[in-house]
Amino acid sequence: MSAKIESFPGTPLSQADLDAGKVLTTYWKPKLEYGWDAGVAISRYLEELKNGRIIGIKCSRCRRVVVPPRVVCEWCWEPMNDWVYLQDTGTVNTYSICYIRWDASRAKEPQFPAVIWIDGASNAGFLHLLDEVDPDDVKIGMKVQAVWKPAEERAGSITDIEYFKPL
């Protein structure tokens, strides 16, 4: 419809007008820094990652073993303090293949974020990355294992596990 209109009323804005500062805009770059206290449950979890181990926690009422650990079972409202060491192997529950990175740049090598249910935990585990796998070979239900950073490089962080690889 607009194709039939030869000239629109008013003065159109162009990118050049914006670049020339003809449209008044105020810019502000926020300075925001946070240092989150990890707390009782997650501090222990991170400490064990530093040790090269995965620790979960068990609910004494519903018997569920969850990882990451927490101080209360969200289903039972039962305090949790029964710590359980778990294997570093698990099963891919779901995944995606990212061809665009966090900063919206195009990825030459795609990323494989995945939810991994850890063996011994009750439908719980990690949101982490897969690697050493081709896009054509990734499958839901695939068995995987953690690839750890060398002990001296581990810092008590989720990135102490570099990624999970097919088993």
């Binding site: 989150w36 206290d37 990890a38 707390g39 009782v40 449950a41 997650i42 927490r70 101080v71 209360v72 289903w75 039972c76 409202w77 305090p79």
Partner: peptide, 26 residues
């Protein structure tokens, strides 16, 4: 309060309030 996460602080306050009221949240 470096010993507790914000979630654990919320839990502590909630657990005490529910005990005080005699209610189970769920």
């Amino acid at each position: 309060s470096p010993d507790l996460s914000y979630k654990e602080m919320m839990y502590e306050a909630a657990a005490k309030a529910y005990e005080d009221a005699g209610v189970d949240p769920q």
